[in-house]
Design a binder for these strands. Structure first.
Length: 658
DNA sequence: CTGGGGAAGGGGCCC
DNA sequence: GGGGCCCCTTCCCCA
């Protein structure tokens, strides 16, 4: 909008009308601000004149121009029909039993609620005025004789029953001029009857098939469930009435929600009307649904039909037992994707995530003593035998500093749901990780029950200590799999600048990642990690940490290899501040980008088609090839971002980052 | 903030 | 097709 242009802005609130109606209905049920009492054969209904005048031509007539009466006795209208019309007025939905359709049509016609009358006619298969309406018309015709009394604000009269014969219907406007049979009572009687007892609107005789036997009592609403053969007729407000027989699915006229299931709409409508027709005979508590009352009654009878087989606990609800059983199993299948806290119940996870209890990224960590949970993923748990010296362990399987020697510690991995692993170890299998570091020490990998995984870790030692994480040949990983490994690495790093956090591998098809310590090299030595992966690795680093990437020894350097280490995570992704490239033919290539302020470092190794894949490939391939003859999987690398570039390009890149 | 019990509301199944 | 019954999810409350 240009300055000075005073345009109108229309902001729609589509829920407003339904909310307004819903609140009015709630007021009606609670009696709040009700200024009109309608009575019919001893049954009284509190309502609002404004609402009734809005839906009914008759009431508009009655209340138009003057305040009108506070109590209207409408004995000519069936109580049930009157209740249905009131329900329609406040919910835009008709609920009426089919046997009462004619009474409803009669009432709607008399009261000038044309859309309802049309809906009734459609349901009854009548297109034009039928005998009933003719009768009604004649009654109204008779009543029109009183049209001259319109100026009379209060008309008290008494009529004897009359037999009516058919004649043409008159227009509602004409009709209502004559039906000023109103008595204004300033103070509504508690019983809902007129103070002038002889005032009566005698139209009973026009009712066809009228049931004289009504069980309704004063002020009592009719539970929908108690209306046999009922029909729900959704009548769009403001338009011509349109019947819609109950069928699946139905749309709620108030909240527009689609309700599935036959006969479920009346149940749903009570959520808007607040109607609670089912009352506990013991304590008086009311319910909207019969089945809820039934469950409630168990509280009085002491019935707890759901027994826990593992303890003496008994429950009212099946789902309570289900929740309870999770306590026994210890299963916590609902895990926060951010902080990895696990919950036994999904709603607790939802609450956790909605709240602010999950603001930080934490390492996965299981609860002590907790059996691995079930689920589509699996967890890898390293168990070290007592007596194992922690310093002898591979850095990546080493526990955090908080772990004592010989204490249980864990690294955990997970393959995301949906990943299929074909080459599997048997469920519950224990895989030994052998190390040959003097004493008999080994690690075990325990696959959780139910898991099918081909992930295998091996630790070997000797002249060459190799710690390898690899996937078995022929394992088919559907793309997008992620393996998260608890990780600590201080190789080649100064102690104060270690980074230790998770290492996340983005794994492609038939991918392999391996961490290898070169022959003769101490795992914690200077040479750092040989890092081969047909996948990307992302390591979260502490700010200002140094990440050392070394190609390892034995590398046949090509002429002037140029390598750029690229960070790729987050909006602040950038190169380390002045990556240092040192060519050390003896030790291999060594990259030491300083990651000042970087929260994450992404190391994505080159794909096979990069300019100089051979460099990295050969560094890793040969020792692997000795073990896996001809396996081509090791050469499959993911998308690379360790790019080969010229010296000039590298300088430019550094300048860009600076 | 979490664990647990309970209520409310929706959907499926069956009579 | 309506209603009863049951299961499930979601939300609220309390300790």
């Amino acid at each position: 909008m240009s300055p000075g242009e005073d345009g109108l802005i229309g902001i729609p609130f589509p829920e407003h009308s339904s909310e307004l109606l819903s609140r009015l209905n709630a007021q009606r049920h609670s009696g709040l601000l009700c200024d009109l009492t309608l009575t019919s054969r001893g049954t009284s209904y509190q309502t609002h004149r404004a609402v009734m005048a809005a839906v009914s031509r008759y009431f508009r007539r009655v209340f138009g121009g003057h305040e009108g009466p506070r109590v209207l006795q409408l004995d000519c209208v069936e109580p049930e029909a009157l209740a249905s019309l009131l329900e329609f007025a406040y919910t835009a939905t008709l609920t009426v039993r089919s046997s009462g359709m004619r009474e409803l049509l009669s009432a709607a016609t008399l009261l000038g609620i044309e859309c309802v009358a049309e809906a009734c006619r459609e349901i009854l298969g009548e297109t034009g005025p039928n005998q009933l309406e003719s009768d009604v018309g004649e009654v109204e015709d008779e009543l029109n004789k009183f049209g001259d009394e319109e100026e009379e604000k209060e008309v008290c009269f008494e009529e004897s029953e009359r037999t009516l014969t058919g004649s043409a219907c008159q227009s509602p406007e004409e009709i209502y001029e004559g039906i000023q049979r109103i008595q204004d009572v300033n103070t509504p009687s508690s019983g809902g009857f007129l103070s002038n007892g002889n005032s009566k609107w005698m139209l009973d005789s026009i009712s066809i098939n009228k049931s004289k036997d009504t069980s309704l009592k004063g002020g009592e609403s009719v539970p929908h469930e108690q209306i046999g053969q009922s029909l729900q007729v959704a009548v769009p407000s403001g338009g011509s009435g349109r019947k819609r027989k109950s069928q699946m699915p139905q749309q709620c006229p108030v909240c527009q929600k689609i309700i599935h299931g036959a006969g479920k709409l009346p149940r749903h409508m009570r959520t808007h009307t607040g109607e609670k027709p089912f009352q506990c005979t013991a304590c008086g508590v009311r319910f909207t649904r019969n089945d809820k009352l039934k469950i409630h009654m168990r509280r009085h009878t002491g019935e707890r039909p759901y027994h826990c087989t593992m303890c003496s606990a008994r429950f009212l609800h099946s789902y309570d037992l289900k929740n309870h059983l999770s306590l026994h199993s210890g299963a916590r299948p609902f895990e926060c994707p951010l902080c990895h806290k696990a919950f036994a119940r999904e709603d607790h996870l939802t609450r956790h995530r909605k709240g602010h209890g999950c603001l930080e990224l934490r390492s996965r960590r299981t609860r002590r003593g907790m059996e691995p949970g079930h689920g589509e993923g699996f967890e890898v748990v390293f168990e070290h035998e007592p007596g194992t010296k922690i310093e002898d362990l591979s850095p990546r399987s080493r526990p955090g500093p908080e772990c004592r020697e010989g204490a249980e510690f864990e690294t955990r991995g997970k393959i995301e749901a949906g990943v299929k692993l074909e080459s599997v170890h048997e469920t519950g299998a224990t895989l030994k990780h052998r190390t040959n570091l003097g004493a008999e020490k080994y690690q075990r990998i325990r696959l959780q029950p139910g898991a099918r995984a081909g992930l295998q870790r091996e630790l070997e030692t000797g002249a060459q200590l190799e710690y390898e994480t690899r996937f078995e040949p022929n394992i088919e990983l559907e793309g997008g799999c992620r393996v998260r490994v608890g990780h600590e690495c201080n190789d080649g790093l100064e102690p104060a600048e270690n980074f230790k956090d998770r290492l996340v591998h983005e794994i492609g098809l038939k991918a392999r990642d391996a961490y290898k310590f070169e022959a003769g090299v101490k795992p914690r030595g200077d040479n750092g990690i040989n890092f081969e992966a047909g996948l990307g690795a992302r390591s979260a680093c502490k700010p200002a940490a140094r990440f050392v990437f070394s190609s390892g020894t034995g590398l046949e350097l090509q002429d002037e290899p140029k390598v750029r280490l690229q960070t790729q995570t987050g909006p602040k992704a950038r190169l380390g501040s002045g990556p240092i490239l040192r060519e050390t033919p003896k030790d291999g290539l060594r990259f030491e980008p300083r990651l000042g302020g970087m929260s994450e470092l992404s190391v994505l190794l080159p794909a096979a088609q990069t300019q100089c894949p051979e460099m990295l490939y050969r560094a890793m391939k040969e020792p692997m090839a000795k073990k896996q003859d001809g396996e081509e999987g090791s050469s499959q690398m993911g998308n690379g971002s360790v790019m080969m570039c010229t010296s000039k390009q590298r300088e430019e890149a550094v300048e860009e980052d600076v």
